[in-house]
Amino acid sequence: MTGSSVLFDAPGPKARRNSLITSIVGGALIVAGVVWMAMTLAAPRESGGITLPGMFDESRWDIFADPELWGFIWNGVIGTLRAAAVAAVFALILGVVFSLLRSSRLKWVRYPTAVVIEFFRGMPVLLMMLFILLVFSTGSYWAVVSALAVYNGALIGEALRAGLAALPRGQREAGLSLGMRELQTKLLIEFPQAFRQMLPIIVAQLVVLLKDTSLGYIVGYPELLRATMNNLSSYYGNRYLFPLFVVTFLIYLTMNLLLSWLARSLARRRNSGGGGRGRRNAGGDADVSPDQAILVAEASAAARRSTST
């Protein structure tokens, strides 16, 4: 349903005018809402007899002129990125291992792996962090990293497995008929295709991983949130809470939007180029066409992403 305009008759001049009017009215309402919020924030407030300056008052933002503060924030960003990068590498490795074990032909490999994956997927990452922190007493850094690696590894493994399952059977059969072994076919023929197919999902999962490092705030790992919202706001005082929040928010938004943008451009590249695998035309060799399966897998992966905690 990409072209929902199919559903309507082409709008005539009257309908176009109406839609333009609603558009302007709606836009005006939204702008009014935003302005109202800004005004409320900017207005000075009475609190117990003292007048507090508005949120955009200079006295609330002067700390950002201090280079030392940016040093602290930078340390927080590094803490976040370091945990995310190490966890991402381990998650990818684990994901590949999980997907191979999960799609094994041997029942006694496949079923236990499925149980393990379900267990890791069904648990909150936060609980896993606490578990690792208390049981293995690893310190908060490794608690954050290993919990994120295991959890996202399980999710990436599932995505890769869906990719493997969605490949046309002919790929495997062709590999086998060339005289390759099971494992060779899997690693050399099926896996690269599945990985490519699922790359956008995997990158999107890595965005989730980056967001999830913020849970380190709760288990006491000094990442960005802890650096700004806890350490700095108690050091400089509560009146900088809001400005610090805004800055943290913007930093996170920038990091995540950059990664999301990467995911999207990967998805576009996959959709436009990379033909010649005959998948688009081959469809319907099973009762479920692969494209459909991929769509469902993508949709549920997108949904699971909110796992994001």
């Binding site: 705030y217 709760i218 699971r304 796992t307 905690t309």
Partner: peptide, 22 residues
């Protein structure tokens, strides 16, 4: 095509409630 992803959203929400504990 909507119900399975929606269920997954709620699974995620279930896990996310743990953050409230912090």
């Amino acid at each position: 095509m909507t119900i399975p992803p929606l269920i997954n959203v709620f699974i995620a929400l279930t896990k996310n409630t743990s953050v409230a504990g912090g």
